[in-house]
Amino acid sequence: MDGPQREFLDDLLSTHSPAGFESPALRAWVDYVSEFADDVSVDAYGNAVATCEGGSESDRSIAFGGHADEIGLMIRDIDDDGFLALTRVGGADRTVVRGQHVVVHADEPIPGVVGGTAIHLRDRDDDAVPEIRESYVDIGVGSREEAEELVEVGDPITIVGRVEALQGTRLAARGMDNRVGIWAAAEGLRRAAARDAEVTVHAVATVQEELGANGARMVGFDLAPDAFVAVDVTHATDAPKTPSERVSTVKLGEGPVVVRGSANHPGLVAGVRSVAAAEGIDVQLEAAGSATGTDADAVFVSRGGIPSANVGLPNRYMHTPVEVIDTDDLDALAELLGAVGASAAGFDLTAGL
């Protein structure tokens, strides 16, 4: 992957957009899709929709949706010495927070660090990882008054990370979950348009997925597509130390993941798998017996039922600052979405009864 598509991915991964504060990622996304979409709109909470109108032969529409938000932290209090007490934004992992460089997203970005008692000063029998509410950020000031000149309660915080190319086609960064999803949705739209898709194709970047798929609920109701594909990361369990009961067949480098069960509409899933086979795109399968854990769970129950499916990208070390993907998987995912958009007119979206 190179050229404008790689630059777009790097731009997305370099932004910091915790849930509820997604504007930086959404601005980069809207700038990109505006180059080829027929229409781009943004609602009151920031959900962005880019549309390429279909031909006159079909009135069907399909949407590809990723979420623009990421996990993070937030200031819940400032103590008398200027240290910042924390709370979670979404599913932040306390085991990777301590000892990190962070940015407080105030009126101006304020650098800080998550402090931790030095090993020399800790009780040797106490290696417990503190809860996030017990952690604090040090921004280098000495009093509450100094801190309050720079930050305030409710300012979001993200861990500092960098985009790092590993060996081969592997890429590491914070925020893969789910900048890769909105990248793929945008690229799927562009590639579907290049194939002269008969149906109207939408790409969607939703907000607040990490807080309960809130943005997807808004978009599902308002956009009301005939079909919706949620594009998100899924766990690649091919790294050491994965608990045996959680190991799946999903691996990096073996293609995008088609999810079956729960919110996933059988006809839409069959259509996606058929397109993958016709295009020679290798896909992996994953079971979702109860829920997908993605925006599909919110959209499929909207307006009396919108046929939905979850297509995932294998991702190692989810919700850490060093998530790892394979860019070949990501490019294959975008190619699959483009082909799905071009073929969606023929999908059977009935219940099959």
Rank of each mutant, 00 (worst) to 15 (best):
A344H: 08
C52L: 14
R27Q: 15
V201P: 05
D138P: 11
S262L: 11
A173K: 01
Y45P: 01
D125V: 01
V153Q: 10
R124Y: 06
V40H: 13
A309D: 02
R316S: 03
P266D: 09
D69V: 00
G3Y: 01
F8L: 15
E210S: 03
G20D: 01
G271H: 00
A230C: 10
A63G: 01
V250P: 01
M176K: 05
T294I: 12
E279K: 13
D123Q: 02
L349F: 13
S343N: 09
V180P: 11
R179Q: 12
E145Y: 00
R246N: 13
F228H: 11
Q208D: 01
V201F: 08
T237E: 06
H105E: 10
A50V: 10
H105F: 10
V340D: 08
G220D: 09
G65I: 05
V141A: 02
D43F: 09
L333P: 11
L73T: 00
V163A: 02
G255F: 07
R195Q: 15
W29S: 08
G261H: 06
E335I: 03
T242V: 15
A165R: 11
R273Q: 14
D331M: 13
M176L: 15
R60G: 00
R60S: 05
G293Y: 10
A48T: 12
A44R: 14
P240C: 03
T234L: 09
A194D: 15
G261V: 06
H319W: 02
N264L: 11
S58R: 00
R98E: 15
E164T: 08
A106M: 06
F8W: 14
P130F: 06
V40I: 12
D107M: 12
A296I: 11
V33C: 13
V160E: 14
E145V: 12
A192R: 12
P130K: 06
L252Q: 08
S61Q: 08
V151N: 02
T117S: 14
P109G: 10
E198R: 11
F8D: 07
G188V: 10
D43C: 06
R76C: 07
S34R: 14
R60V: 05
G82Y: 00
V231N: 11
A25W: 03
S244H: 13
E35P: 05
P225M: 01
P24E: 12
E286I: 09
G341P: 04
E149S: 14
T320S: 15
G66K: 07
A236P: 01
L330V: 13
A25C: 11
D126L: 06
A68I: 05
E279F: 10
A230P: 07
V219Q: 03
